[in-house]
């Protein structure tokens, strides 16, 4: 389940705007009006870096997330996916 996402290309939904905050960022989705706190700067960098890499796994590695934390980060990404903050890459530009 999480494993599958690791090898897929993902990116930020076009309906989402980020506002930098000291703890990380606020992500606001203009379509579903969901506001989400990204509570760590690494989480923000990861989300924003997704579009620049071929897979979630390489994004995690590029950002320097330790392997033992990958499950938590991927779980967070899946949470963001359920509210369309991020999407599988093929759907991002639609």
């Amino acid at each position: 389940m999480h494993e599958q996402m690791l090898d897929e290309p993902w990116g930020v939904s076009p309906s989402v705007a980020f506002r930098p905050e000291p703890f990380g960022a606020l992500a606001y989705h203009f379509g579903n009006r969901k506001l989400t706190f990204l509570k760590r700067p690494e989480m923000v960098r990861l989300v924003q870096h997704l579009a620049e890499t071929d897979t979630v796994r390489s994004a995690l590695q590029d950002i320097g997330i330790p392997a033992e934390s990958h499950n938590a980060y991927v779980g967070a990404l899946r949470g963001l996916a359920t509210i369309d903050i991020i999407r599988p890459r093929g759907e991002v530009s639609e």
């Binding site: 509570k39 989480m43 330790p66 934390s69 938590a72």
Partner: peptide, 30 residues
């Protein structure tokens, strides 16, 4: 049982990374 996917995990939880808020609860703001 013996899945190593399990956890040699850090203490980090999803809740430490993201938190969702619905602004529909903030009535009357807009």
């Amino acid at each position: 049982m013996n899945e190593d996917i399990k956890n040699e995990q850090s203490d980090l939880l999803v809740e430490d990374l993201i938190e969702e808020v619905s602004i529909d609860g903030m009535c009357g703001v807009y």
